[in-house]
């Protein structure tokens, strides 16, 4: 490989820019001319982050033409689909199975489902010749921190590029925060050692249709603590406010019920949740909800 065009895509906070800086540094260390260009506008609010990276003997344009990407690294499922047309037919594509549902996608009021695309790995594999799917968040979590997911994806990327392993590790060490070097090295190694296409086949078998964390209210009584994870922004207020430590944030920074039996029903979490993501139901209310499912109008309320 004398030249290459790599497109790294994800959403704000996933480390797309850091990962592309590392790859750019590696290409420079190996004597290539490198041009890198990124877009990271309103990424704090779940926006798209893309980074074009081109290396070769001499690179003139920092941007990659549509259909000319040699390796597409998608940090997020929706972004993988969005940027698919950029990929050169037959070229490899790396996909992290993490899903970040953007606010604009939660719009279907009737079914309470979002417009977020379903994970359909079989369909994607038919379009992409060399599809490499992994769960980088889980790999990084096992390595010590979910924040190292970008290093795990670099590990998956490493075998596809003509750079020596030692240069990868040197560049990784010099770019990540000093305190996290070991964790990032572990995540990189774990990503590097994933067997393909076996790993892709394993995920294709395991994923089912599941578009949105909010599946709506069914006819049975809701649980005592109802969490709408897709609305949760991980602000930590409920976790800190709960006197009996019922709640915790999970690896995806969403609130999860970890000690349901300890809940006293004080409702502090519900009252202080700025995102309407928690509702505490008590017993009478659960019964009332069932009998008056379609209770409406002011006469019943007044």
């Amino acid at each position: 490989m004398e030249q290459g065009s790599i497109l790294l895509v994800g959403v704000g906070g996933q480390g797309v820019v850091l990962a592309s800086a590392i790859v750019a540094d590696i290409a420079l260390r190996c004597g290539f001319d490198v041009k890198q260009s990124e877009v990271h506008g309103m990424s704090q609010r779940g926006g798209v982050v893309t980074s074009h990276l081109r290396f070769g003997g001499q690179v003139h344009s920092p941007l990659i033409e549509r259909g000319q990407v040699d390796v597409l690294v998608a940090f997020e499922w929706n972004e993988a689909l969005r940027w698919l047309p950029q990929l050169r037919p037959g070229a490899p594509m790396i996909v992290n199975l993490q899903r970040q549902v953007p606010p604009g996608a939660c719009r279907d009021r009737k079914s309470w489902r979002s417009g977020y695309p379903a994970v359909a790995l079989d369909a994607l594999a038919r379009q992409v010749g060399d599809l490499r799917v992994c769960d980088a968040l889980a790999i990084a979590g096992q390595a010590g921190s979910p924040k190292a997911a970008n290093s795990a994806l670099l590990g998956v990327l490493a075998p596809l590029l003509p750079f020596p392993e030692s240069v990868w590790l040197d560049a990784l060490r010099s770019h990540v925060p000093p305190a996290t070097v070991t964790i990032n090295e572990r995540a990189f190694a774990a990503g590097r050692s994933l067997p393909f296409p076996e790993e892709t086949r394993r995920h294709a078998g395991a994923t089912r249709f599941s578009a949105n964390g909010f599946h709506g209210r069914d006819e049975s009584a809701p649980p005592r603590l109802e969490v709408i994870a897709v609305w949760c922004k991980g602000c930590d207020i409920c976790v800190r406010a709960c006197p009996t430590h019922v709640l915790a944030l999970n690896a995806a920074d969403k609130v999860a019920v970890v000690r349901p039996d300890a809940c006293t029903g004080c409702r502090l979490c519900e009252l202080l949740c700025p995102d309407f993501a928690i509702v505490v139901h008590d017993a009478e209310e659960r019964a009332a909800d069932l009998t008056a499912a379609n209770h409406s109008g002011s006469e019943a309320r007044g």
Binding site: Q44, P103, W231, K233
Partner: peptide, 10 residues
């Protein structure tokens, strides 16, 4: 249909 709102975490 408009939720979740755009306000920042916290």
């Amino acid at each position: 249909d408009m939720m979740p709102h755009i306000l920042c975490p916290g």
